[in-house]
Design a binder for these strands. Structure first.
Lengths: 182, 182
DNA sequence: CGATCAATATGTCGGACCGATATATGGAAC
DNA sequence: GTTCCATATATCGGTCCGACATATTGATCG
């Protein structure tokens, strides 16, 4: 999904500024399965406005730059609808941590231990975050619960696996290090 | 992790051509947590050769272009080691399918059903694939089992969740569609 | 038996995107 | 009182993907 379509999708739920759109990808409901940076969002919104997919309303602010509030037009809604007809690509999982663990011979076991512990904490925080959101806003739009639940299940599985196999991994790394030292 | 570092890492395990490196990211042991395209790998290898991080050996072939076999130099090994000292970034999960489900009001429930079924099959195939590899090549290098196991756990959790919540999601979508039709 | 397709193997190129940076200010923290 | 964070816009260098170009062999298929 390109950033322009992502922006149209966010605007289909409510009007927003570029800054607010980015926040929805950084912390909001999309954070767990899509991302977009400001450096991509602002040009995408400008282009979408040129194409008549969105309208802009400038709101004066003292000191700060004007707030530009974007709204979806009927043309924009149609473009979003069209983009959603294409077949979705594969899900992508990327992890620099797993890369480091794969090449853990190049690391000190203590560093790996710290990194794994930190990642477990991160994943468990994400689970807690999603669960709290599930309580406050369950059942509004169809699909939202499913999406949130899947994120939760994946994070929980990752945290559980790391917790259960942490000791084994470290034991292997330390015995390998002893082996190399001899 | 940039593509140059990724290439050095692959070459630290064994000599390879650019084409073979890509295959390791498409099907090989790295496929589940890192990717790199040919359009990035070839320039990265050329640049790495210029910097003395790898050496090239051209092997003549009839008809086809020469096979260029790359090998890691001591300088390249040092560069890889240095790159591995940086703190890893967050794990990234991206899913166009979840995006479509989030905006499933724009879709026919039947299409969502098909897409979910296909994705379950894909995840279960990945689990089977990883499990078969775990049997044939377990315990060679420390960390490899851990990485494979985590991939397996995540894919299994995603497949299980989708299987268990598929009916609920579809029920919600169909009742919403009926509601809109009235 | 020709046709089309996948795999092998290199490489270029346009366009998309990220991350850093610039600019400007109010409020909170310490 | 200074440092840091949040708000809010925008640009830009560099990186990377996906598509294309090129060339050949072997397989599948009607």
């Amino acid at each position: 999904m390109d950033v322009k379509t992502l922006c149209l999708a966010v605007l289909s739920r409510r009007d927003a500024t570029g800054y607010e759109i980015r926040k929805q990808f950084a912390e909001g409901p999309f954070a767990h399965f899509q991302k977009a940076s400001l450096g991509a969002i602002y040009p995408a919104l400008t282009k979408a406005a040129e194409e008549g997919l969105v309208t802009v309303t400038a709101e004066a602010q003292d000191g700060r730059p004007d707030k530009k509030i974007y709204s979806l037009t009927p043309d924009g809604a149609a473009a979003l609808h069209r983009a959603c007809q294409t077949e979705p690509g594969d899900d992508q999982f990327r992890s620099d941590l797993l890369f480091l663990i794969f090449f853990s011979a190049l690391q000190s076991p203590d560093k790996i231990a710290r990194l794994v512990d930190e990642r477990i904490a991160q994943y468990e925080a994400s689970v807690a975050n999603l669960k709290s959101k599930a309580e406050t806003c369950s059942g509004e739009e169809p699909g939202r619960d499913f999406v949130r639940g899947l994120g939760c299940a994946i994070y929980q599985a990752a945290a559980d696996y790391m917790r259960q196999n942490r000791a084994d991994l470290l034991e292997q790394l330390r015995s390998e290090a002893r082996h190399a030292a001899e």
